[in-house]
Amino acid sequence: MWGELIQEVRVAQMGVQILFAFLLTVVFTPKYDTLDSTDQTIYIVTVVLGAAATGALIGPVSLHRLVSGRRIKPRAVEWASRLTFVGLVLLLATMTSSLLLILRVATQDGYVPWLVTAVVVWYLLCWFGIPLWTRRRHTTR
């Protein structure tokens, strides 16, 4: 189970690291100074969420390294799995707030919250709904 978990984490890590790196550069652009206080607040929240997601998704690698050879692999897999789940939830929040910020800056139209909501519902379906439905439908008792 450890190998599968680490492979899954690698996919999420790459995405969150690229997103986080992009977010870190935004504050150094001239456009940042023109954002209103609401958009600057959304940006700050997004960066903090991105940092938290990065920490949670890199955590399993550190956990593995620090407990390797201690004969506690089942417990390590359990904790790494929890960290990964928390990381995915934080990544969802980061992507949501990033999308909100980008669409608010790109357009001031009233449909932005609806569009962001639709994308979040899609993420929830893909990341949690279908996997939970599959687990429930195909798990033998």
Rank of each mutant, 00 (worst) to 15 (best):
Asp109Lys: 14
Arg10Glu: 12
Gly87Ser: 02
Thr134Leu: 15
Leu88Cys: 05
Leu115Gly: 08
Pro131Asn: 11
Val105Ala: 07
Val26Thr: 06
Val120Glu: 04
Asp36Val: 12
Val77Ile: 14
Arg10Leu: 11
Leu35Gly: 06
Ser97Asn: 10
Val120Ile: 13
Phe28Met: 14
Thr34Arg: 12
Ser98Ile: 02
Pro60Ile: 01
Thr29Glu: 10
Val77Trp: 00
Leu19Trp: 11
His64Leu: 06
Ile130Ala: 15
Ala52His: 03
Val48Ala: 11
Arg141Pro: 09
Gly50Leu: 04
Thr34Asn: 02
Thr46Phe: 06
Ala118Asn: 05
Arg10Trp: 05
Ile44Met: 08
Phe85Ile: 15
Thr46Tyr: 05
Pro30Val: 14
Asp36Ser: 09
His138Thr: 15
Ile6Ala: 00
Val105Arg: 11
Ser68Lys: 10
Leu103Tyr: 03
Trp79Phe: 06
Ile72Trp: 01
Lys73Ile: 09
Cys126Asn: 14
Val61Leu: 10
Ala93Asn: 08
Ile102Gln: 05
Arg71His: 12
Ile58Val: 15
Leu23Gly: 04
Ala93Pro: 07
Val16Asp: 09
Arg82Gly: 07
Leu100Glu: 08
Ser98Gln: 05
Gln40Arg: 15
Leu91Phe: 10
Val9Gly: 00
Phe22Ile: 15
Val26Phe: 03
Ile102Gly: 01
Leu24His: 08
Thr84Arg: 00
Ile58Trp: 06
Leu125Ala: 11
Thr34Glu: 07
Gln13Gly: 08
Thr140Asp: 12
Val27Asn: 02
Val48Phe: 09
Gly87Asp: 02
Arg75Lys: 07
Pro60Gln: 01
Glu4Cys: 00
Pro30Cys: 09
Thr96Phe: 03
Lys73Thr: 12
Pro131His: 13
Leu63Arg: 05
Arg136Tyr: 15
Pro60Arg: 02
Arg75Tyr: 02
Val112Asn: 02
Ala21Ile: 10
Ile42Asp: 08
Thr117Ala: 10
Thr94Lys: 01
Gly3Tyr: 01
Ala53Thr: 09
Tyr32Cys: 00
Tyr32Val: 09
Leu83Arg: 01
Arg65Lys: 10
Val48Ser: 01
Met1Pro: 14
Val26Pro: 03
Arg75Thr: 05
Gly129Val: 10
Leu91Lys: 06
Ala51Glu: 05
Gly110Asn: 07
Thr29Met: 06
Val26Met: 12
Val9His: 00
Ser97Thr: 15
Trp79Met: 14
Ser98Pro: 01
Arg135Pro: 00
Val105Met: 03
Gln108Leu: 08
Leu5Ile: 14
Met95Gly: 12
Gly15Tyr: 01
Thr54Phe: 09
Glu8Trp: 03
Phe20Thr: 12
Gly59Leu: 14
Thr25His: 00
Leu5Ala: 04
Glu4Thr: 15
Phe22Trp: 14
Ala12Arg: 00
Arg137Gln: 15
Thr38Phe: 11
Gln17Asp: 00
Thr54Lys: 06
Leu91Pro: 01
Gly87Arg: 02
Arg135Ser: 11
Met1Ala: 14
Ile18Tyr: 08
Leu91Val: 00
Leu101Asp: 01
Trp133Ile: 15
Asp36Thr: 07
Gly87Glu: 02
Ala118Asp: 04
Leu103Thr: 08
Arg82Thr: 13
